[in-house]
Amino acid sequence: MLKSYRFTCQACEVRLMIKDQPYAEGAHIRAVGYPHNGPDVAENMLCLCPNCHAQFDAGAITVDDDLNLSRNGEPAGKLHVVKECHPSFEQLAYHRATS
């Protein structure tokens, strides 16, 4: 999944390089552990930089069904998506409802 996005953050489009290697994190939209019990599948994942991952997990970044991003309640552009790796609208709605 990270390779589909070339290790580029879907939220801020930063491609973090560490010693000539790109680095990004796979962030579960709906956490896989208790109490959320989200599925561990590509449709429940986003490719994010460490900063956006932390903000997403804390609810500071949310994604609407039209893929518009909000950061700290303010409009923040659109989530970048590729055809082969589209996030689940169901999981995005769950994230919004629980953030």
Rank of each mutant, 00 (worst) to 15 (best):
D20Y: 04
F89K: 06
A31Y: 06
A54P: 02
C52M: 07
H28Y: 12
R30V: 02
L92S: 05
N51I: 09
N68K: 15
N44F: 08
A24G: 02
G26Y: 03
N72H: 13
G59A: 05
M17C: 10
P87F: 00
H80V: 10
E25A: 09
A24R: 03
K78N: 14
E13N: 15
C49R: 08
A11Q: 15
L67T: 00
P50F: 10
D65S: 09
P35F: 00
S4E: 15
A58F: 01
C12R: 04
I61P: 11
S99T: 14
L69N: 08
L46W: 12
L2H: 06
L79W: 13
L79E: 08
P50N: 06
C9R: 06
A27M: 13
H53W: 02
V63S: 11
D66R: 09
K3F: 12
V82I: 12
H80K: 14
L79S: 09
A27Q: 07
A27F: 09
K78L: 11
Q10D: 04
E43R: 11
E84Y: 00
H28Q: 09
A27Y: 08
V32Y: 12
L67C: 03
R96A: 10
S88Y: 07
A93H: 06
G38A: 04
Y23V: 15
P35A: 00
G77D: 07
A93C: 02
P50C: 10
T8C: 12
P39S: 15
E13M: 13
N72A: 12
Q91G: 00
Y23G: 04
L79V: 08
V82A: 07
K78W: 07
D64P: 02
E90Q: 15
C12Q: 03
A76Q: 12
A54V: 04
K78Q: 14
Q55Y: 11
L92C: 00
P87L: 04
A93L: 13
L2T: 01
C9Q: 07
H36P: 00
V41E: 14
V63I: 13
C9I: 07
A76S: 14
T8M: 11
K83V: 10
Q55W: 05
Q91I: 00
E13P: 07
P87H: 06
A54R: 12
Y34C: 02
D64A: 13
L69F: 09
Q21C: 02
D64N: 08
T8W: 09
L92H: 03
V81I: 13
C9G: 03
P50G: 07
N37R: 12
L48K: 08
R6Q: 15
C49A: 04
E74A: 15
V81P: 03
R96P: 02
S70L: 11
T98F: 12
G73A: 02
S70K: 10
K83Y: 02
D64W: 01
Y34G: 00
N51M: 11
N72D: 15
N51T: 14
Y5V: 00
P75T: 01
T62K: 04
V81W: 06
E90M: 14
H86S: 10
Q21N: 07
I61E: 03
C9L: 05
K83D: 09
A60T: 02
N51A: 08
R6Y: 11
M17W: 15
C52G: 01
D40M: 01
G38K: 03
